[in-house]
Structure formats: C-alpha cells, structure tokens
C-alpha cells in the first residue's frame, strides 16, 4: 500500500513527531522514577504489584502528546496547504484518509507500547516492589488505555478535519475533559441528575484511569474491556469522525 509508505515518510520526516514521542515516553518514565528515587512507600513496598505502578503513569499526560501527533496528521496539511499535494497524489480521498488514520493510530500505539516497556524496565530496575507482574491482569489495563487513546484520537482527527485547525483538535477534547464537562455537570446536575452519565470525555477518562488504579478490579478479562467502553465516549467520537469523513470527501481541498 503506497499510501501507508507515503504516510510513514510524512510522519517520520517531521522532527516534531520524534520530539513529542520522546517527551511522551520521557515524562511517563520520569513520573514513575521520581517517587521511586524518593523512596515513596507505595512504590517500594514489597506488597505492591508491578501492575499497580505502571498504568497510573500512562494516560493523563501521555494522551496530550499523542493527540498532538494525531492532530498534526491533518493539521499540518491544512496549515501549510499541503493537503493539495496529498490529494493530488491520492485523488481517491478515502484511500488517503484511511491510510493516514491507520498510520497515525499504529504509530501512537507503537509509542504507547514502547512507553509501557520503558516503564516495566524502570520498575524492574529501581523498585523493590515484588508483587509480581501478571500479564492477565495487566493486559486489560493496557488495552483499556490503548482503546481510550485510540477513540480519543479519532475525535482529535475529526475536529481537525472539520475545522481545519490543528490547535482546536488538541485543545477542545482536553478542555472538554478537564473543564467544560465538569462545569456543565455542576450547573445542570441538580435539574438533570443523570447528566454526568452522558458526558463523553468524563466518562472516557473515568473508564481509562479510574479502574487503572485498581488493576484487579472489574476488568479482569480483555472481553470485559471491550464491553465496558462508555457509550457516550465511543458514540460522540465515532459520530464526530463519521461526519468528518463525509465532509472530507465532499469539500474542496484548500
């Protein structure tokens, strides 16, 4: 598939891709390493499982770097007008779209996997935690974070494709997660007590992180991870992405 080779050369020849990937991995390792070096009890307890240490350092900040890479996929093309170059090489727009989305998601998955390996190595090298590493309980947490990142990034890609502004793709989901949904819930929850159940990004982050603190909690199998994806989070981002595909296919490349 020449579109995948094109996309690989596009993403891999940008310095920002590697800087963001390095920062994502570096910050995760640092967040884990600091309490280890400071001998924080939980991190050095012999009863603490390695499973407990690794996932909690992954999602919150890591996703910002990965969403910046995802946002740049179309953001750079729109900012520099190179969408015309891309589409004159691939006039079948769906081919370009799916090639690009596939490669971005594969690349962010690769960075995520590398980061997790780096964290496992860090724990192995620096921690006295001997609670063991159990893949059967770690895998659901690993896949849950990966799914969260993938769905989140679909939303990022969609917002950039809809608005043609890279910054909005990065900022809007972040603001929704950190502030907007919380404020909306605060204002409306007395009248609509169920409102918080329908806040997509809050549901998403709770699902991804909340249970990660308890790696042996409800999500003990990979199947349970897939069946537990919060529908508001999945539905909102997938719907946004489908609208973006439709518009990308219809409108002018400028």
């Amino acid at each position: 598939m020449s579109v995948l080779l094109y996309e690989w050369r596009r993403i891999s020849t940008l310095r920002s891709t590697w800087i963001l990937s390095g920062l994502a991995l570096g910050q995760a390792v640092l967040i884990l390493l600091l309490p280890l070096l400071l001998s924080v009890e939980f991190y050095q307890s012999t009863s603490t499982s390695l499973n407990d240490l690794i996932p909690i350092t992954i999602v919150p900040i890591f996703i910002i770097f990965m969403s910046t890479i995802a946002g740049a996929a179309f953001g750079h093309d729109y900012r520099h007008g190179t969408i015309r170059t891309s589409l004159s090489l691939f006039p079948n727009r769906l081919e370009l779209l799916f090639g690009r989305v596939t490669l971005v998601l594969l690349f962010t998955t690769f960075v995520y996997a590398m980061t997790v390996f780096a964290l496992i190595f860090t724990v192995w090298a620096w921690s006295s935690a001997t609670g063991g590493f159990d893949w059967t309980t770690f895998a659901p947490a690993f896949i849950r974070a990966l799914l969260y990142m993938t769905i989140y990034n679909l939303g990022v890609l969609a917002i950039v494709m809809l608005t043609r502004i890279q910054a909005l793709g990065i900022v809007v989901p972040l603001m929704m997660t950190l502030a907007v949904e919380g404020i909306v819930t605060l204002i409306l929850s007395s009248r609509y007590p169920w409102i918080s159940d329908y806040m997509p990004y809050s549901q998403g982050i709770n699902w991804a992180i909340g249970s990660m603190y308890e790696s042996t909690s409800d999500y003990t199998s990979i199947t349970s991870v897939f069946t537990s994806i919060p529908l508001p989070f999945l539905g909102f981002n997938v719907t946004l992405f489908l609208i973006a595909i439709w518009l990308f296919h219809r409108r002018d490349a400028s």
Binding site: Y6, W8, R9, T13, L14, R15, S88
Partner: peptide, 25 residues
C-alpha cells in the same frame, strides 16, 4: 506544481521528494 510553497517548512528538500516518491514507488 500548484504553488511554490506547498511543502512543510520543517521537512528537508530530499525528505519532501522521498515522501512524494512513495506514491509511485
């Protein structure tokens, strides 16, 4: 060749051409 500045400013000339070359190998 639709515009003189249709490239990413951070990409080198060779990288830009290698990227375009990918489409037709």
């Amino acid at each position: 060749h639709l515009d003189a500045k249709l490239f990413h400013p951070q990409r080198t000339a060779r990288s830009h051409l290698r990227m375009l070359a990918a489409e037709s190998r």
